[in-house]
């Protein structure tokens, strides 16, 4: 009755709400945890102590060099056709404007195609992208490449409609990347409302002028750490089931949803197994990644350090798409291993979270999956995820203790059973 015992303890028993309460203390105490910041350093120290205090084994930190970019004061004002304060958030790795700021006419486009067609008009202007939200993977390309594409046609700055499925005038930040052979221009995200308004004005033929001022500094890479803890396997200790989430976040909100929830249900999986006095045959390893938001920086260095043991990694699991009401798992692996995971998911019938979806998603586990290690990601109700993602709204208020209990139960049953089965999951 191990699956039942895990579910009972997580959802109804003494551990009920524990991952939520632990996360609340962490998020309220530490706050947002941008790569290279003192807050992230404090968050890692906090977790190192907390995991030791929890009685987990082999608690240690693995050094990583991470980007260090800091936001400065920033604001944007529409000067024409009327005075209007534009809510902005500079994008990660953006350069600053000159101290006096940039004042320029705006060109509004809905796509890269439109920008390229109107390239002659864009020279010397601020490009405003009013791209519709289709899906995160598709729409985020505007945030990632918007500045580069605008600079290629001679723009002086870019303002990008936030990659969000809903908005209450909230800008959402995130990483962007420059290209070596393209001039660097300042870039920030703006609210959906302001992007749409400027689009409407532009379609009416109204001239729009914006003054943009952004402070931002990029420092040399900083020392940071992936945080690791284990329950060492009883029979095959060298073999590993890896459960994970990332500790770093953006510098707005509290990073409670992205990815506090994922990190803390991963910790909870080890706590629940320990509380039940269980020790799986294989080692259950918790990794709390650093530098995920800048493109899985901590995870890549972890992969480089440990890839020589790839044959001993049974499965890599990451929760980084919210810890709302869970429905099952995304899974990447061979057909034979998928059949086994589907069978394992039947153990989650008591909480109605038995689905297995086509692929696992997770920046931090992608290196391993690319090389054939089975991967799993938590599937929960993602409907509201991009309302709060990378915004001031990513706080504990978004999290729900009951939903986190269910996520923790699912995460624990799956990771424990895979770690305890006699055979590793078969690979292609």
């Amino acid at each position: 009755n191990i699956a039942k015992a895990i579910i009972d303890l997580a959802v109804h028993g003494k551990a009920q709400n524990r991952s939520y309460e632990r996360l609340a203390v962490f998020a309220d105490t530490i706050g947002p945890r941008l790569s290279g910041s003192k807050n992230l350093e404090a968050g890692i120290k906090y977790m190192f102590n907390a995991l030791q205090k929890d009685g987990l084994e082999n608690v240690h930190l693995e050094p990583v060099k991470v980007p260090h970019w800091e936001r400065g004061e920033e604001f944007a004002v529409m000067l024409e056709p009327r005075n209007h304060s534009i809510a902005i958030l500079g994008l990660g790795s953006s350069i600053a404007t000159p101290p006096e700021g940039i004042t320029a006419e705006v060109i509004v486009v809905a796509s890269f195609d439109e920008l390229h067609k109107r390239a002659q008009e864009a020279k010397g202007k601020i490009v405003v992208y009013n791209e519709p939200f289709i899906s995160y993977g598709e729409t985020v390309q505007y945030r990632l490449q918007g500045a580069v594409e605008a600079a290629k046609v001679g723009a002086v700055a870019s303002l990008i409609r936030s990659v969000a499925s809903f908005s209450i005038h909230s800008p959402h930040t995130g990483e962007q990347s420059y290209q070596p052979d393209v001039p660097q221009i300042p870039t920030a995200c703006i609210s959906v409302e302001d992007a749409e308004m400027m689009s409407r004005m532009s379609l009416r033929g109204t001239k729009i002028v914006v003054h943009l001022r952004m402070g931002a500094k990029t420092y040399p890479d900083s020392l940071s750490f992936n945080t690791v803890a284990e329950i060492v396997g009883s029979k095959y200790p060298e073999q590993v089931v890896l459960v994970s989430g990332h500790l770093d976040s953006w510098d707005v909100g509290q990073g409670a949803m992205d990815d506090g929830g994922g990190a803390f249900i991963s910790w909870e999986a080890l706590s629940l197994i320990k509380d039940l006095g269980l020790r799986p045959k294989r080692t259950l390893r918790l990794v709390l990644w650093t530098g995920e938001e800048q493109g899985g920086v901590g995870a890549e260095q972890y992969y480089q350090l440990h890839k020589e043991n790839i044959s001993n990694f049974d499965i890599v699991m990451e929760s980084d798409e919210g810890t709302f009401k869970p429905s099952g798992l995304g899974f990447t692996g061979s057909a034979a291993s998928r059949d086994i995971v589907k069978e394992i998911m039947t153990l989650l019938q008591p909480i109605n979270a038995t689905d297995v979806y086509d692929t696992a998603d997770g920046t931090d586990i992608s290196y391993w999956m690319r090389d054939g290690v089975p991967g799993a990601s938590l599937h929960s109700d993602i409907n509201k995820y991009f309302w709060f993602h990378h915004s001031q709204g990513d706080t504990m208020t978004v999290q729900d203790p009951n939903q986190m209990n269910l996520c923790a139960a699912l995460w624990t049953v799956v990771s424990y059973v895979i770690a305890d089965m006699e055979d590793m999951l078969p690979r292609d």
């Binding site: 039942k4 086994i340 069978e343 049953v413 089965m421 055979d423």
Partner: peptide, 24 residues
Amino acid sequence: KSLRRDGSSLKSFEDIKNEIAGYT
């Protein structure tokens, strides 16, 4: 090692199903 060199399982799927059912 519980994983063969070619990555295939030594057990039939029925065996694995029974093993998983043991965790119910």
